[in-house]
């Protein structure tokens, strides 16, 4: 799952880079040449990539929590296996992405500590609750669907190690998305209770999906380092439009109603009304839509969402609880030489 579409700290040039090297670096990127670790790169780029991969890794590790809550309740052997494998994939993605940042100079332990102490962020969408099995279907269909769209563009970025990792991750996201699609299709072809559960979950996750890609970029985003250096290659609004064009008609065909909702502090829906702003423009092929509640977005990202405290608290419990195992194997009493 992706974390990179959330606002990452704006990159600022440090101002004391060698102008010739910088020009050459930027020309390479403009020419579509990928950057490999041995290449010269501006310090701001190095730090920016480190932070981006770290944020993405954090999102995978925290993203494992809401779905993890449902492994013990999955309703069939196959769903139980699939959900366990899916959450396991997120952990695997986190491990691989931390590795990218480790190579850029920050230890994994420091990253895990900064995460649980709230010094670094993760993707906002994991601060919302998953109160039913329907939420699991929606997370895998909508959020993983959005993540694939976003990560396909990230795989078109410029930093070799991140691109490589993204390609591997996308392969596994394809399973997450298909399995989510299968769950949504099954539930919407099922009993009245199953359909209601699905609509309720859709009401919770549709606005979160629209916010998934982050707020609109600045008008001059293409001139700013993040896009100039191809750390990100598509504007948030453009990704959001593609997402809606694909998922709005699919949701309607499934019999789901696309609502504008209000939520309480627990992230549960308190009122719904159909989004009348949702109209297909036949000439452009684009669906118009009502903007999600961006005030809510900022409130949640600043730490005041329904589940922020709970997610970090469980993650910290896990970090502290497992400390003795890491200390035992790190102490060297069990180690062998680095190679046979």
């Amino acid at each position: 799952m992706s974390g990179a579409a959330n606002p990452v700290k704006p990159l600022e040039m440090t101002g004391n880079e060698d102008p010739d090297k910088l020009a050459e670096f930027e020309q390479r990127i403009a020419d579509g040449v990928l950057i490999e670790p041995g290449d010269w790169m501006p310090q701001a780029y190095r730090m920016g990539m480190l932070g981006m991969a770290e944020h993405h890794a954090n999102s995978e590790i925290i993203g494992a929590l809401p779905e993890g809550e449902w492994i013990t309740r999955a309703p069939s052997m196959r769903r139980k296996l699939a959900l366990t494998a899916k959450v396991q994939d997120e952990v695997g993605h986190g491990q691989m992405l931390y590795r990218v940042s480790q190579e850029l100079g920050k230890s994994r332990d420091d990253m895990l500590r900064d995460l649980v102490m709230g010094k670094t962020k993760y993707h906002n969408c994991f601060n919302y609750p998953a109160p039913t099995w329907g939420d699991i279907a929606m997370i895998q269909w909508l959020i993983d669907g959005a993540a694939i769209m976003n990560q396909k563009t990230l795989a078109d970025g410029a930093y070799g190690p991140y691109v490589r990792t993204m390609n591997r991750i996308n392969m596994e996201e394809a399973f997450h998305f298909k399995s989510g699609e299968d769950m949504v299709l099954t539930l919407m072809s099922g009993t009245r209770a199953q359909k209601q559960m699905t609509q309720d979950a859709f009401d919770r996750w549709w606005p979160v999906s629209l916010m998934f890609f982050g707020p609109a970029d600045k008008p001059d985003a293409e001139q700013r380092p993040a896009m100039r250096w191809r750390m990100k290659v598509e504007r948030n609004d453009s990704l959001r439009q593609r997402f809606i064009n694909r998922f709005a008609p699919a949701a309607m065909d499934l019999g789901l109603v696309i609502n504008i909702v209000t939520k309480d502090e627990q992230g549960l829906v308190t009122s719904t009304k159909p989004d009348e702003g949702l109209v297909l423009d036949e000439t452009t092929g684009n669906w118009s839509f009502t903007e999600p509640d961006w005030d809510e977005f900022w409130r949640v990202i600043r730490g005041n969402g329904p589940c922020n405290a709970h997610r970090l608290s469980l993650r910290r419990f896990s970090y502290e609880q497992g400390g003795w195992v890491r200390r035992a194997i790190g102490a060297g009493s069990t180690s062998m030489p680095p190679a046979a």
Binding site: Q102, A309, L314, R316, Y319, E320
Partner: peptide, 19 residues
């Protein structure tokens, strides 16, 4: 365990270097 709201106080225990 997943339901529990933990009361974490203060600093984290010492870290472990990457293996």
């Amino acid at each position: 365990i997943r339901e529990r709201q933990f009361n974490h106080d203060g600093e984290l225990p010492p870290g472990t270097p990457d293996t």
